[in-house]
């Protein structure tokens, strides 16, 4: 296993798509980003940093 070439990033970043097929996973990835954004906004408003902070 140790003879596997180590990636050099960011130039090898594109190779993620040789493992993860965007036709299958792009929308789940985008919905996960949306869920994280909603969670962060929820916490920010919950701790009182909302509009009227």
């Amino acid at each position: 296993m140790s003879d596997v070439a180590k990636p050099k990033n960011p130039e090898d970043d594109w190779k993620i798509w040789l493992v993860v097929n965007p036709a299958t996973w792009l929308m789940p990835i985008l919905f996960t980003v949306l869920a994280i954004a909603i969670a962060v906004h929820w916490v920010v408003f919950a701790v009182g940093l909302g509009w009227s902070a």
């Binding site: 040789l18 493992v19 965007p22």
Partner: peptide, 18 residues
Amino acid sequence: QSLSGLTDQQAKEFHEQF
């Protein structure tokens, strides 16, 4: 064939837009 089934060319092309 790659694990995802994409060719190097397709992966690079998608990554540019990403």
